[in-house]
Each structure stands twice: as structure tokens, then as C-alpha cells.
Simulated assay, not measured.
Amino acid sequence: MHSMVEIQKLLMPDVLSVMEKRYQILRSIYFMEPVGRRTLAQTIGLSERILRSEVEFFKKQHLIDIQNSGMKVSEQGLTVLKELESMMNEISGINEMERKLKEVLNLQEVIIVPGNSDEAPWVTAALGRVCARRMKEMLIGDNIIAVSGGSTMAAVADMLTPDFAGRKNLLFVPARGGIGEDVEIQANTICSKMAEKTGGKHRALYVPDQVSPEVYQSFTKEPFIKEVLSLIEQANIVLHGIGDAMAMALRRNTRPEVIEKIEAAHAVGEAFGNYFNEDGQVVHKVPIAGLQPEDLPHVEHILAVAGGASKAKAIKAYMKSAIKSSVLITDEGAAKEILYS
């Protein structure tokens, strides 16, 4: 039996095409707001003339508000977006991609965001918003949330709001140390921002991201660090990204001889200090202070967030050894690369 969407595709393809275009424009405004018309036109690849007529339509329907700072989706527009989401995912084929990706990666849940974050910055914001929404569904009572560093996790922090926690108690802790990389995307910074935006609390771990075993042992004897590491081990929710192997190695100012080792071993991805090849085998392990991969089976909820076609190999490789109850939040760019390349 044909679904209603399939019937509509046969009888009213033009209507569905217009609906899909307007949904994507309204959705882009939502993730980029406040946004000007020229910036939006350049981002989504429409001429300003065509976009001008669509903006006028949204304005007449009270779906957007236009302010000096730019366009924003109105409350009515947000309601329309939420009600259309499931239908539009079916029309665009995202629902089917999610089903296929779950099978390919052997995961219980996959959420795919439209677009490719390699090409459009607003898609990274969409990944952050979806992660924030999914995490909110997991909160029960007291929560310790361990968060890794990276630009995607920073996007998640940007999407948190004061009403996020409700009556839940939130404690954000860094999944690992982070001294030595860009301050804005360090786990400590991201945890601080998440706590500030939700009214929760956070603890910092002021140790280098990469340490020798001897130094690691000396660090863990410090009472303050020992306490924070204990909290990290008690986390019931973990949020983490999946990095491209070489990009992560360079970001961490890795020694040239180690980079040569990683290249020679054909590493494609990195997570929790482990570099792995396309078969999911760990080819290099960085001693890190904080959460270790062997700690993950004891974590109730794991959200892995990574997007962009360039991350496809890293995502696929990491998921070969990942906890199967992990929730993968990714985008169309990565999903299509994994499924069809």
C-alpha cells in the first residue's frame, strides 16, 4: 500500500516541490537566525530575487519576524516547522537513509540532519540543536554529562537554553583534559558554557590533553584532579565528536614522528585519543587524562555527533567498535558518503 506521501508525489509533485523548498528556506532561517536576506541567499544557493518573493510569502503568513538584526522564525513558524519535520524527512528520503545507516553501522538509533556541514555552517548548528533536543529527552533526576571538545560540541552548547534542565540537576564535566588546543573548543570551555546556559554546574579538568603515563600517574594523585576524574567516570551521559585522523593530529600539535606513524597506519578517524583505520582497528593511542573508551560500556547514554562528507570514513570506522546503543547524529553529506560511495 502506498503511503500518503507517495500518493501526493504522484498526484501533486509540483505542490510537494514548492513545500519542500519553502520548508528548507524556513528551516535555514531558524538555524541561522537572525540572518539577512543576502547571507541566506548565498548560503542556500538561491538568487536574491527568488528569495525575496519567498520571504514576502513567509511574512504574510506570519511565519517569520523581520528585525533590524535580520530574519527570525516566529512562534507560528516554529510550530509549522515541527509539524512538518516528519513528513519532509519522508519526502526527502532521510527516513529511509536513517534506516539503512542503522543497518550498515549496526546501531540502535541514527538521526540525520539535512545538508552537508562541510558546505554550510548552519548544518553544524542543526546538528547541535538536534543533539540538544535528544539529550534533553535523556535527562532524569541527577545527571553527570561528560563532554568532549571540538567545534561540533561547541555548536551543541550554543543551542542550550535556560529551560533545558527543568527540575533536573545537571553537572557538566570535560570528557578529557584539553590544555594545548584552541580555548574556544576545549572541553573545559564548552562545559562552562553549557552550565551557564542551562543553569547547571560544571567542573574543569586543568591538565594537558596528552600526557605520558608517568605524568598521568602523578596528576591523578592530586586531590582536585582525582575528584574530577571520579565524576567523569560516573557520567550517565556522554557527548562526543568523531574527528578526522590527520586534522586531529595537527590540531593537537602532534610530533612529526607520530604523524608519520598515523599516516603509515592509514588512520582515518579519532575519538577519545584513539586513532583508528578503516577497519576500526586502533593504530595509535594517545595517553589522555579523562574518559577512556573502555569506560563507555558503563555509560547509560552515548551521543556521537559528527557531520560532513569528509567525516564519512572516520564515522564508519569508529562505529565498527563503538557501543551499539550509541546514538549517532550526523548529516546527509556524511550519510550519503557512507551509504553510496
Rank of each mutant, 00 (worst) to 15 (best):
S47Q: 05
G243V: 02
Q234H: 09
K59V: 12
I190F: 01
G149P: 03
K201T: 00
P213N: 10
K285N: 01
Q210Y: 13
Y275M: 08
E181H: 11
I323H: 03
V305Q: 06
S92C: 10
E337D: 13
Q217C: 07
K226E: 13
P297M: 04
A195Q: 05
H284W: 14
L250H: 05
Y30S: 03
L16G: 09
L339S: 07
N274V: 00
I91E: 02
G273I: 00
M32V: 03
S17T: 02
E222N: 15
G36R: 06
S47V: 02
P223F: 11
A245N: 07
D279S: 08
V211Y: 03
I144L: 14
A312L: 15
Q76I: 08
K193Q: 10
T161S: 02
I145Y: 00
A155I: 02
G180E: 03
H202S: 15
M138K: 13
N95H: 15
Q67Y: 06
F172H: 00
M1N: 10
K136A: 03
K193V: 09
L229M: 11
T220Q: 15
M319E: 05
A125T: 00
S148D: 11
R38V: 12
I112L: 09
I237M: 01
E257R: 11
H62P: 00
L328Q: 04
E119I: 06
G128P: 02
D14H: 12
S341T: 09
M12Q: 12
T39E: 09
P174S: 10
N89M: 12
S218G: 02
I225A: 05
K285I: 00
A120E: 01
E75G: 13
H240K: 11
Q42F: 10
Q292R: 04
E181Q: 12
G307M: 11
E119A: 15
D182R: 14
G307W: 12
Q67W: 03
E90P: 12
R27V: 01
V305E: 05
I140T: 07
E337F: 11
S28C: 02
M71A: 05
S69M: 10
G45A: 06
L40T: 07
G77W: 10
M138L: 12
G128D: 03
V110M: 13
E96Y: 14
A146K: 04
A125L: 10
E54L: 14
N68V: 06
M71H: 04
Y275N: 01
G280R: 04
S212W: 13
A249M: 05
G45M: 06
N95K: 15
F31S: 00
L296T: 14
G93L: 14
P13N: 00
P287Y: 02
Q67R: 11
T152S: 14
K193N: 08
E33H: 12
Q42L: 09
E196K: 06
R22G: 04
A245C: 00
I91F: 14
P121I: 06
V299E: 02
N143Y: 10
A157N: 04
Q281G: 02
I190R: 04
K59E: 15
Q217T: 13
K193G: 02
K102H: 10
I338W: 04
V104E: 15
I179W: 15
G77V: 07
M153H: 09
D182K: 12
N116Q: 00
A125D: 05
G243H: 03
S86E: 14
N116C: 04
Q234M: 13
V113I: 15
N68P: 01
